[in-house]
Amino acid sequence: MLDPVPGISLCPACLESQRDRVGLHQDRSHESRRRALLECDNATRHITPAAGNLTLLYRRGPGPTHTLRRYLEAYRRFRSLPIGTSLAQECVSPCDSFFEFRFGEHEIFALRPLHDFGCPDHPTRVEICDYCGVSARRRPPPPWYVSAMVSKRRAGLNGGSAAKHRRGRSSGVPRAKMSASKNGISTDPSTRTRTSLVGMTIYQPDLQPSALGRKLLDALER
């Protein structure tokens, strides 16, 4: 079990024994959310609604660990935390930011502000604060949130505006669509064909020319 984080008051519910887990997707009522927040898990014990505009998104199953690691690393750098800092404690900061933490082997907890720019995995979800009742309102992203951190899925669903800044493909156009044009000729760069030898490496055989060969090569040079 993690140590309490200074400055954050523990919810009395944390002291209760293990409860059945309640996913937020099942019941979005205030009490259910509160219970979900406070469900007895080592990681969630110390995340309390006392911090303010915070919510806890709870999901089961494998999650986007790659994206998650980038969020965590960016947040650690933003806060100038030394490498190895327990981010499980940092997650209780009254942040106006967005970050996710994974606790345990198969559980993903996403901690993020309400009224914010949404979850990369649920971009169409309308966010309403269960605690203050304020409906979704877009805020500027926090300074540590860089555009490259937008997940591929979100970028694709948003029409590719962020995707064009990514390496590789220039837009969110699906690969299958890119590779087949109207006349059936492939336009996918991965299947492009050279039209000339220009720029190619022509390897020269490591052979010793005979006298006849030397004469021919001299003639070619002339």
């Binding site: 055989p205 020319p209 005979s210 006849l212 021919l216 090569l217 070619l220």
Partner: peptide, 11 residues
């Protein structure tokens, strides 16, 4: 003379 042809072709 094949090697000479070979060298000539690649050159």
């Amino acid at each position: 003379a094949f090697n000479d042809w070979y060298l000539l072709a690649t050159r």
